Simulated scan of single mutants.
Amino acid sequence: MPQNAMRVWKRVLQRRLAWHFRGRKRNCYRLSLGPVKKSLRFSTTIRPIRRKNIYHLFINRIAAGCAQHGIQYSSFMRVLSESNIMLNKNMLAQLSVYEPRTFQSLCEFAKKRHSELLQQGIGTVLKPTPSGIITRDMIKKSV
């Protein structure tokens, strides 16, 4: 590829990356070099933090909806997973905010199922640990 064509493609790429800027930073190649570099660095460093914040937002919304209907978040999620209700945290958060009656029915189901498990005694029984693993409960029992 000739040198001139490479220069043109470099400038085209720079313009594509600067399309959302305002003013001369958007149109002038030299003025867009610094801001484009900074925006790319910002987008890659902030992405994992943003994902973590969104994940915590989902959990907080679900927990608030559960508290409103009188069930704990952990038991709600455990009952849903054991009952093979495959709704991810995003969908549950959306239901808790925008579809309160649907979320209420899920909470009622979870409360009923949780009480059934407690009556059967299955809810309090711990699953056996694999051999070779020492848990805190084992240490507490031996002391």
Rank of each mutant, 00 (worst) to 15 (best):
R41N: 09
R26M: 12
R24D: 11
I49T: 13
S43K: 09
R15L: 03
G23E: 05
S32R: 00
T44L: 15
R47D: 11
R7E: 04
L17K: 03
G23D: 14
G34R: 12
K37M: 11
L31K: 02
R15I: 00
V12E: 04
N27M: 12
G34F: 07
R24M: 10
R7S: 06
S32P: 01
T45G: 15
C28S: 13
N27S: 08
L40N: 15
Q14V: 04
R41H: 15
L13G: 03
W19N: 10
Q14P: 00
I46H: 14
S32Y: 00
Y29R: 11
L17W: 01
P35L: 03
A18S: 07
K25N: 03
R50C: 11
K25S: 03
N27P: 01
Q14W: 01
A5H: 07
A5N: 09
H20P: 02
L13W: 06
R11I: 03
S32V: 03
M6P: 00
P48M: 12
K38V: 08
T44V: 13
S43E: 09
K10Y: 06
R11Y: 02
S43G: 13
R26E: 08
T44Y: 07
W9F: 07
S43T: 13
N27K: 12
H20G: 08
W9L: 07
V8D: 06
W19Q: 15
R7A: 14
A5R: 15
G23I: 06
Y29M: 13
F42H: 15
L40V: 08
L13N: 04
V36M: 06
K52S: 10
R26P: 03
S32C: 05
V36S: 04
